[in-house]
């Protein structure tokens, strides 16, 4: 098993560290899956435990100037590592003006991702900062636990409003309640609601638009058969939602959510070549 990668371009480095920052805000520990052309950050908290899941996918070619990896075997050319994204974010946040950042899988005291940052210095030679981030190597028999989640058979799919606006609304609602109801319909309307004994607050969003989903198994047609005005609602943990909204470092080019009535809310954020999916289960 070998892995070695290098980022030289500053814009790529900053973009990459922003993504890591987003992930660090969503997951305490997560799985990094490496393939020849892609990196995946996976969080698969079991829905039964009330947790949320995340699937973030990016092409290595958009970030790395060098990227070499060799999996356990030729036919399974992948690496699965468990690590704390906060550690990687810490290593990258102090590398904002680095000349180069190298990431390498090593095994000194324990398996580590070694992040070597080459910083400009006052002398002729660069200053080298190395961080050894401990990782756990996930054995192949457990890889199946980290498969890409399928898009659920949703009742409503809708584009989200500007995330900053949504964040400031949810932030205020968080002070009043622990749960939030997201409801939307197929005519571009979405409401964010909280209800407590003392107060009910609803924020209405209009003209958001509903993304067209190519129908394979009649998913779209079944949606068409439904009443366009009827709301599909799900009540979710407000902290989980705020985590997602507050963690966004760049406004994604496309943000949408799929609601399965009373079961799950599925968020998809797209930014250039990066996609982030986040699943928040509904509470009963």
């Amino acid at each position: 098993m070998r892995f070695r990668a290098k980022i030289v371009d500053l814009a790529c480095l900053n973009h990459f560290s922003r993504i890591i920052n987003t992930i660090a805000k969503l997951a305490k520990t997560c799985i990094l899956r490496l393939t020849v052309c892609k990196l995946y950050f996976i969080l698969s908290d079991k829905v039964a435990n009330g947790g949320a899941s995340m699937w973030c996918e990016l092409s290595q070619g958009n970030f790395f100037d060098e990227f070499q990896m060799e999996g356990v075997a030729a036919e399974h050319n992948e690496i699965y590592l468990e690590f704390v994204p906060e550690n990687l974010w810490r290593a990258l946040k102090t590398a904002q003006n680095a000349k180069a950042v190298k990431i390498k899988l090593t095994n000194k005291h324990c398996p580590c991702l070694r992040v070597a940052v080459e910083l400009p210095s006052l002398s002729s030679s660069s200053r080298i900062v190395t961080h050894d981030i401990p990782v756990g190597v996930i054995p192949r028999r457990m890889w199946n636990d980290f498969r890409e989640p399928s898009v659920p058979d949703f009742d409503v799919s809708i584009y989200l409003p500007v995330l900053k606006t949504m964040k400031s609304v949810v932030e205020r609602m968080k002070n009043l309640s622990n749960f939030i109801v997201i409801e939307a319909n197929l005519s571009g309307e979405m409401n964010l609601k909280i209800e407590t004994d003392l107060v009910s607050v609803t924020t209405h969003f209009k003209d958001l638009g509903n993304p067209p989903w190519a129908s394979e198994d009649g998913c779209q047609s079944s949606a068409q058969g439904r009443d366009l005005e009827s709301m599909a609602e799900a009540c979710i943990d407000i902290k989980k939602l705020l985590q997602l909204l507050a963690g966004q470092q760049v406004n994604p080019t496309k943000a949408l959510c799929n609601i399965v009535r009373k079961r799950i809310v599925h968020f998809i954020l797209l930014h250039e070549e990066v996609s982030l999916q986040y699943f928040i289960p509904a509470v009963a």
């Binding site: 550690n87 006052l122 200053r127 900062v129 401990p134």
Partner: peptide
Amino acid sequence: SRTMLTEIQLNPEE
């Protein structure tokens, strides 16, 4: 396996 280790090397010229 839990601790991140950091090391910074400096040149005496600095």
